[in-house]
Write a protein that binds this DNA or RNA. Sequence first.
DNA 1: TGACAGGTATCAAGGTATTGATGATGATCG
DNA 2: CGATCATCATCAATACCTTGATACCTGTCA
Lengths: 148, 148
Amino acid sequence: MGMPASDRLGVDLHLADQELMAAKRTAVEPAGLTVPQYAALFVLAENAGISGAALARACQVTPQAMAVLLKLLTERGLVERAPHRWHRNVLETRLTDRGRAALELADDRAAAVEQALSDEFAPAEREQLRRLLARATDALRRAADALD
Amino acid sequence: MGMPASDRLGVDLHLADQELMAAKRTAVEPAGLTVPQYAALFVLAENAGISGAALARACQVTPQAMAVLLKLLTERGLVERAPHRWHRNVLETRLTDRGRAALELADDRAAAVEQALSDEFAPAEREQLRRLLARATDALRRAADALD
DNA sequence: TGACAGGTATCAAGGTATTGATGATGATCG
DNA sequence: CGATCATCATCAATACCTTGATACCTGTCA
């Protein structure tokens, strides 16, 4: 094969992300939420009345994925959806009180994970890491475009 | 909420990983493979006769997830599974010729993505990024343990 | 010999994601 | 006014991941 696995930067990146997702999962689980559900509620908290499609864009998933997720959350009474007054085709989505409570519970622990991650680094290192990650993201986007 | 989203290092990390996965997906798709399938074939290429459970560990997924994946790959004739001579309970897994061909096709393009990622950075930056990612991984593991 | 731990496989249920296709609605422009 | 375009919602098919539970086989230890 072209390149040994140990030379693949992508492996390290993916390992770190897997650990992040695992940590967030254990953080958010006592609130009865999964990570994507938590993410959706988080965005929803500061964007009341947003459409499902817009929420999907904010969470970086497809509208279909978000639709399934919102269906679950609606059935559990964590969000409410009601037709927009003018644009009848749009379902405005909002947090319920129960949704807000679940989000707060989850976010306390999720923020602790982020804090622990942040505390691992000195401020300069933190900035360095962000810059390197941003460059990696750009390079990967370009590579994918070049690929087809 | 506890911490603004823009301060969350985890967001940058996850964005980079999403871009990586998207790039790999477009790289590997012409070979008729998904990213996890490609990963499994990659490990299999250098570990002929490995068990499904061991393959799962190498790919950082649960044995169940790997079982589903291997079922698909077996049906498509990319891998073969046969009972171990002594440990009848173990299914030894091997690449078929078709599997090897698909892997080579996929790996050419996947390696190009890794190359593009690598080329974005000077050698010192590359090492720096790896070190930072390794520390992040450790910090996250500790945070998850502390959480429960 | 017999109980037990450890590795392996597999069924089941719940949740997330993709692409593709369809239908309904509002806005813009000829 | 009517065609076209963009946006939104949703059904369907496929694939992947998780936890929990069950069951088999094997080697070990009492």
